[in-house]
Nucleic acid binder design. Sequence first.
DNA 1: CTGCACGCCGATCTTGACCTCCACGGCTAT
DNA 2: ATAGCCGTGGAGGTCAAGATCGGCGTGCAG
Lengths: 219, 219
Amino acid sequence: MSAIEQTEAARPRGTRLPRRARRNQLLGAAQEVFVAQGYHSAAMDDIAERAGVSKPVLYQHFPGKLELYLALLDQHCESLLHAVRTALASTSDNKLRVAATMDAYFAYVEDEGGAFRLVFESDLTNEPAVRERVDRVSLQCAEAISEVIAEDTGLSTDESMLLAVGLGGVSQVVARYWLSSESPIPRDTAVSLLTSLAWRGIAGFPLHAVEGQLSAEGH
Amino acid sequence: MSAIEQTEAARPRGTRLPRRARRNQLLGAAQEVFVAQGYHSAAMDDIAERAGVSKPVLYQHFPGKLELYLALLDQHCESLLHAVRTALASTSDNKLRVAATMDAYFAYVEDEGGAFRLVFESDLTNEPAVRERVDRVSLQCAEAISEVIAEDTGLSTDESMLLAVGLGGVSQVVARYWLSSESPIPRDTAVSLLTSLAWRGIAGFPLHAVEGQLSAEGH
DNA sequence: CTGCACGCCGATCTTGACCTCCACGGCTAT
DNA sequence: ATAGCCGTGGAGGTCAAGATCGGCGTGCAG
């Protein structure tokens, strides 16, 4: 979070800002517009107007619309990956790991400005650069999860990746559903429910594991 | 241009077709182009050329690009919903139900032409009509699944919907991953793995709800 | 005081894609 | 067979949106 940021309210169209501050402000305005309207419906005019500047200023800071979008996308991909890795590393108890990771997805989705839409609901997936970013962050998250799975279940890399993609997918899809539907279920309860589902599912797998001190939970 | 255009399926550029057949052919061509390029990158010229007709005939069958897209989208939403409902009704054994539903998603994704992209990876979600279709089919699938869950676990409607969205999400996300990655895992094995994951997860909830040996564990 | 540099703005250009207007050719009725 | 009808085809209009060029005002050095 930027500290000294004169957010909206009173943005007279004539204020002069240092380049770095102006750039950050433009990024903020662009995020709002892209999140609200999607890439294609968002016009550079809208972004400039939202920021309280004219279009040429926008082009003095970013080469074009695509680069502006990619800058935001990179930022939020990085953010998601960091959140997932942090959650996975937050404990060594696997059940808590599942809960922490689920919660990370929920927190990410609930993050201000709904920036998750840029990653999970982009309308520019045909653009190779965007596709590459989105696929990469999904894969990296899945790989991080699959490492834990492979280590603790002895499943093959391919199999654990399949399950990891599934767990990441569940988190992402349900978090978005929970956010969009004005569900009466509070966040903690939703995370808890999903954690039960996922943990019971994944904990049943150490078929090939040598020993199961995990199996204490064995239902 | 003087060369005979007898390329595939005998589509000489001058053939007159009955109205219904022409419409279906146009739908097929449009699907190919939309799937390959996405909505925005796809041009009406491309679709007309792909079908071997000129643009005016396209506009004699469809009022505009959006309506053409919606016709395809409706068709494939219907198809998905039908597949899921059929799978759920195919048996009364819950574990087999899970397996059948998973397999339905995989079959749907593997369906010819990759038409699932229109539903799961549309780049027109900003258009309210499209958003409405996509959200509706997701909700309807989730509702169908949640009915079974609610009936067999005694969970509340909200809770079972949350889990149902999760199960549908897993199926959809993993099926797409499995298709895109040239995974060495055969389809049956992948479905089986996911079924184990999902079944263990879902079966852990109070199966016979009336009796109250409820959650013996904390979460 | 005066010139200079810098950041900003109004107005404009161009591209590209959706959507129609004038000529051509096969089918049918008498 | 011939005249008419209707669907097809290519060329063009329109418009939205991304990208850019000549002025303007402010602050500072000399």
